[in-house]
Write a protein that binds this DNA or RNA. Structure first.
Lengths: 129, 129
DNA sequence: ACTGATATTAGTAACAATTACTATTATCGA
DNA sequence: TCGATAATAGTAATTGTTACTAATATCAGT
């Protein structure tokens, strides 16, 4: 069933994400990979981002701000989005995974995971005002 | 600056959401309001859902499953989405708002809120398999 | 190295969710 | 009842994403 074949484009996308800590969108990935592979197609970027995410090699982050974001860091961690400048950043915080136990208490289904997005005003925007 | 005027369509949308506990999408709202106002436009539904959400009278829930969902219950609570059937439901669970304190510990910005989405397999789907 | 099977690609078209535009209609204070 | 303007229906446009297709790249078996 569909043995994976190497592709330099896919490798390049993965490497690019590993160097970025700002959770770029597919479009930003596209513009950057284009510097190395000038005629890569946007469809290829989307397909590989989806594939890598489903393989667990990158993480997709949906914030509701329009486009999905992608994160090269697959270690469990939480995100913060600034309501003022729209920036999406990692939070360096203690694990809150025990909220899954809290959630499962009165629940008849099975909770496998959670994604938490914190929002507010980031440090930069707080200082500006 | 844009004094709000009454509209029966907007009122109808708000009332409809108050009767539903399954977090319908804009399209589902549209199809249902159409039974009362047969020629309401989809644009009107979107505009009013956005307006009501920004007024804090309803809640917008982005899950990443395609369309945004809308919730007539503005009391803080958490949601669960089933990876098997796609159903989005409320969780009856203790407050986990203290995770905001945990998140703010090493953070120089200001955290105003959070939205947590739990996922896994719902009770119905667990029983089926 | 060569070959064949097939995964991947570039390029483009299609799609779904949402927003913008515009002429008409509804609301509401004076 | 009138006038200002918010809201609407209907439609067009936009945005983010996925699907399609012919050509290309990968790679296991020779």
């Amino acid at each position: 069933m569909a043995a994976l074949k190497y592709s330099r484009q896919r490798e390049s996308i993965k490497e690019f994400l590993a160097t970025r800590y700002d959770h770029p969108t597919a479009d930003v990935v596209y513009e950057n990979i284009r510097k190395v592979y000038p005629n890569i197609s946007l469809g290829t970027v989307y397909r590989n981002l989806g594939l890598l995410a489903s393989l667990g090699e990158i993480q997709k982050v949906t914030t509701g701000d329009g486009a999905d974001h992608f994160d090269g860091n697959v270690m469990p961690h939480n995100h913060f989005i600034c309501k003022s400048c729209g920036k999406l950043i990692d939070l360096d915080m203690d694990s809150i995974d025990y909220i899954q136990k809290v959630a499962g208490k009165n629940f008849d289904g099975h909770i496998e995971g959670h994604s938490t997005l914190f929002y507010g005003t980031c440090g930069d925007c707080t200082n500006k005002s």
